[in-house]
Design a protein around this nucleic acid. Structure first.
Lengths: 153, 153
DNA sequence: ACTGAGACTGAGAACCGATATCACTCCGTA
DNA sequence: TACGGAGTGATATCGGTTCTCAGTCTCAGT
């Protein structure tokens, strides 16, 4: 699944446009566990392509999401969506005190998915599991003492 | 807990303001399984209090969410948050074809929550599980035939 | 009753992320 | 060379959420 093998076949997958490639580079360089907003990705992309516009970054993220190269995560309580390189499915955690977002290795068991699908007649294609609470750092601080709000991102 | 017994104590819980009570009525009348946006709740609230403003409804929803009386659900792919009366935790399903939202009875097992909390040193307080796929109605229709987009809400 | 403080309220503006639009450029093909 | 489709950047637009502000109301303590 390297992103460099182009599909030259008749009307099949086209080569990734250069700017989209830049967007993918930014996301993949940030690595798994990094949760970047489109804005942040745009800022970093401009370090590589100073003239790249936000619209292009946004379109690139849509395309890359369709291609399955990046994951788009809608975190409840977060204003904007965040992106990370595609990886095996996992859950996310958001600290309600400092806003930090992290990965957790939890997936809904396949048996449960099949049971839900059969019972309701639905075809489940994707899952999004997000936990909210207090992260380790904020957990150590009494919930009134300076609030742990020093690391909001 | 009628809305007439005021809490006279020194700074304890105040009584629910009348308009907030109206908002709560709307949400509870819609019942569990109804997923109303703030706009929809506002429309229904105006049937009870014609002069109520959207800001008041929105503030009421925030308050009621803090109080734990209503649940706020951020559905990935949905533009706005939806609200429903507080109930036992459950998962949600969104049809990617028609946009319908429904409830599913799935919760992350307590053992898994405890294990995740211990491993990462976090205190999990809430979970949000959302599945995406095709609902029973859209599942029956071949994925190009009129798209099943007749029942978007 | 009077009064001051604080909560509630409605209307509208402001904000912000996401998306659409449009004119232009680039590149491969006929 | 001419054409056409995809890519691109700047900007407009949209919709949901949140903020602001002035007016109103309720309550506690006189």
């Amino acid at each position: 699944m390297s992103s460099t093998d182009f599909g030259p076949a008749t009307g099949a997958a086209r080569a990734l446009p250069p700017n989209y490639r830049t967007v993918l580079d930014v996301v993949e360089t940030a690595g798994p566990g990094s949760h970047l907003t489109a804005q942040e990705i745009w800022v970093r992309a401009r370090a590589l392509q100073p003239r790249i516009g936000f619209a292009t970054v946004h379109r690139g993220l849509i395309r890359l999401h369709e291609l399955g190269s990046v994951m788009k995560i809608d975190v409840p309580g977060e204003a904007s969506a965040v992106y990370e390189p595609a990886a095996h499915p996992h859950a996310h955690f958001r600290c309600s005190a400092c806003g930090a977002i992290g990965d957790l290795d939890y997936v809904v068991p396949r048996a449960a998915l099949r049971r839900l699908g059969e019972r309701h007649g639905i075809a489940i294609e994707r899952e999004a599991v997000t936990f909210t609470g207090r992260c380790a750092a904020c957990n150590a601080v009494p919930p009134g003492t300076s609030d742990g709000r020093s690391t909001p991102a």
